[in-house]
Simulated assay, not measured.
Amino acid sequence: MTGDLDPAPAPARASTRRHVVVMGVSGCGKTTVAQGIARATGMVFAEADQFHSEANVAKMRAGQPLDDVDRWPWLEALAAWMSEQDEQGRSTVIACSALRRAYRDVLRSAPPTVQFVHLAGPPEVVRARLAVREGHYMPASLLDSQLRTLEPLEADESGVVLDLRCTPEQLVFHAVSWLGE
C-alpha cells in the first residue's frame, strides 16, 4: 500500500499505448479510481462487469461465487477488448477484480503490456462500503469468497498496491504518478 510497500517500477514504455487494470475485491473503489485515471490520462475506460455473461450476472445476483469455468470467457473477452483497442492506437483502463495471478495472466496475454493498480486495505472498510452501495448485482455476502480468492501481485507483475483508505482523488493521483502520466 502507498508507503507500505515498494512498488515494482513502471516499465519503460515502448509505445504510447498502455493498458491498466485497477484491481481488487468488490467495493474497494475500482470503478471510481479507473474512471479518474481515464479522465486524467485520456485512456479509454471499461467496466469489466459489463463483459460478464447474463449467466454470470444471474449467478452472482443469487449469491453464488463464480468459478473458473465462469471466469475464463469473461477474462478472454477483456483481453480481446484491450487488444482491439491497442490495434486502434488507444490506451485503456479497466476496473476488474483480477483476483488471482492466473486471471491476470489471461489479461496480460493480448496487449503488449498490462499494468495493475491494486486497491487493497482492511476488509472492514470494504464491508462498510458494500453495506451502503446500491444498484450493484454483487452482494456483500460474496466478499469473503473474494478475499479468500485474492492473490496479491507478485514481484514480476508490473503493478502498484495502493491503500484503499485514501480518498479517490488521492488514489487517482498516486496511480497516475506511478504510471508516469
Rank of each mutant, 00 (worst) to 15 (best):
A79N: 10
S91P: 06
A62Q: 11
A80L: 05
P111E: 01
T92Y: 08
A77M: 06
V57N: 03
L119H: 07
I94P: 10
A95H: 06
P73G: 04
R100F: 13
S53A: 11
Q85K: 08
A98Y: 14
R108H: 11
D67K: 04
Q115D: 00
L119M: 01
A62D: 14
C96V: 05
L99A: 10
M82T: 04
D86T: 14
R100N: 13
V57S: 00
F116C: 03
S97K: 12
R108D: 03
S109V: 00
A80W: 01
Q64F: 03
P73S: 01
A79W: 14
F116T: 00
Y103L: 07
T92H: 15
A62P: 11
L75Q: 00
V93T: 06
Q88M: 12
E87G: 13
Q88S: 13
L107M: 09
M82E: 10
A95D: 08
R101M: 08
V106Y: 05
T92S: 15
W74E: 01
L78H: 00
W72C: 12
E84V: 00
R71G: 05
P73Q: 04
N56E: 02
T113L: 15
L66M: 13
H52N: 00
V69G: 10
T92W: 02
A110N: 09
S83W: 15
Q115S: 04
A98I: 13
S109W: 14
W74I: 10
E54Q: 15
R108K: 13
A110V: 01
Q85I: 00
R71I: 06
D105R: 08
H52D: 02
S53D: 10
A120W: 14
E76C: 06
A62C: 09
S109L: 08
D68C: 08
A77G: 10
H52W: 06
S97M: 08
P112S: 10
I94R: 03
R90G: 09
Q85R: 12
S91H: 14
H52F: 15
A80T: 06
L78S: 00
A55Y: 05
C96F: 15
R71M: 07
A110S: 14
H118Q: 12
A62I: 02
Q88T: 10
E87F: 00
P112D: 05
W74C: 05
D105T: 11
R101C: 07
A80E: 14
R100M: 15
S97A: 06
A55V: 04
L75K: 00
R108N: 04
C96D: 02
L99S: 13
Q64I: 01
T92D: 12
R61D: 01
V57M: 08
L75D: 01
D68V: 04
V69Q: 06
L99V: 08
L107Y: 15
K59H: 07
V93S: 12
G63C: 03
T113G: 11
M82K: 10
E76M: 06
S109I: 05
S109A: 10
H52V: 02
F116P: 11
V117A: 13
L119F: 05
A62R: 11
